[in-house]
């Protein structure tokens, strides 16, 4: 019989990709592996109250037992994860999610994330531009109002001469259709539910390392985890960690394909910047690396070492 109820809280509608393809799968697996002793109640779209930036505190305080959130919603709190959010850093979501989990275990488990029990850490597929006018070189972005998804993306947009606009993901469709913004940065997968491909005609993607990425966590309240009987703890352990993180990042990135196809079918203009042409972009983004490393130094963290380690781990991945 059911002994434990876990409340899983997150910010997207239940039918969005990640809730359906990742979180529901996780929850179903946990319920099944526990022989029905664990029930996962799923609360989508902030149904338990609060705003997305509060999700992490909700897990820490036990308002929800499990939360899925974007780490960038709480800038300044988990600086180490930003190594995977640097522009032109991540090429493959599976490799990055694997590296992210390994570095979580060595650098963040007892540090930045000491207040939660971590279940999974992953990144989304390549982030790219979706714009009203074609963006083929950095100069095209001059003066465009672009919605950026994280602290580092906003820095990048500024360096590129665009005007970064901050707004939550659900507001993007409205803002695009009204011309309040000229474009947005999101991965393909998110364009489906926002109908971005119907709203803009141009998409600019990069061969090789992506323009940017966001980091996610699936985190559990510490006391809830500690309070489980050993066999149920085992159920949770079996369904979390490295393998789950790679599955989650990979699944999310795989959802990019069908979303991109919608844009193709729609006859949209998809601009692909080759690796050589991306050099110009990378040169502009370079100061972000420098300022990020300086920022990390100020916090007593060796930023360069984190970058090197992340690169080495991603290169070593051969899933």
């Amino acid at each position: 019989a059911q002994e434990v109820t876990l409340r899983l809280h997150q910010f997207l509608p239940a039918q969005a990709n990640v809730p359906q393809l990742v979180l529901d799968v996780w929850a179903d697996n946990v319920e099944e592996a526990s022989g029905g002793r664990i029930e996962v109640e799923r609360y989508a779209a902030m149904a338990l109250g609060g705003t997305p930036p509060e999700l992490m505190d909700q897990a820490i305080d036990g308002i929800a037992d499990v939360v899925w959130t974007v780490v960038g919603y709480t800038p300044g709190r988990f600086p180490t994860t930003e190594v995977f959010e640097l522009p032109f850093m991540v090429e493959d979501a599976r490799a990055a999610s694997s590296a992210y989990w390994q570095m979580f275990e060595t650098h963040m488990k007892d540090g930045e994330f000491a207040d939660v029990h971590m279940l999974g850490t992953w990144v989304h597929g390549p982030g790219l531009f979706h714009t009203d006018t074609p963006v083929e070189s950095p100069a095209d972005l001059e003066g465009m109002k672009i919605r950026g998804g994280s602290r580092l993306v906003n820095q990048l947009l500024e360096l590129l001469g665009a005007e970064p606009v901050g707004m939550p993901v659900p507001a993007v469709s409205e803002a695009l259709s009204k011309g309040v913004i000229n474009g947005t940065t999101i991965p393909w997968e998110v364009t489906t539910s926002l109908r971005v491909s119907e709203l803009v005609d141009n998409h600019t993607e990069f061969e090789g390392p992506a323009l940017y990425n966001l980091t996610f966590v699936l985190a559990m309240n510490k006391d809830t985890y500690e309070g489980l009987p050993d066999d149920l703890k085992q159920v949770i352990d079996d369904n979390s960690g490295l393998e789950f993180s790679i599955f989650a990042g990979g699944t999310q990135a795989d959802a990019d394909g069908p979303a991109r196809q919608i844009a193709v079918d729609n006859g949209n203009n998809i601009i692909t910047i080759s690796e050589e042409d991306a050099d110009e972009w990378r040169a502009i983004a370079e100061p972000i690396y420098e300022s990020w490393i300086a920022d990390m130094d100020a916090r007593g963290i060796d930023g360069q070492a984190l970058i090197d380690e992340a690169r080495a781990l991603m290169d070593a991945y051969d899933g």
């Binding site: 930036p53 960038g72 300044g76 709190r77 994280s150 906003n154 901050g166």
Partner: peptide
């Protein structure tokens, strides 16, 4: 926690 805002930080 040292949390900051997104744009003005």
């Amino acid at each position: 926690s040292g949390q900051t805002t997104l744009l003005l930080q």
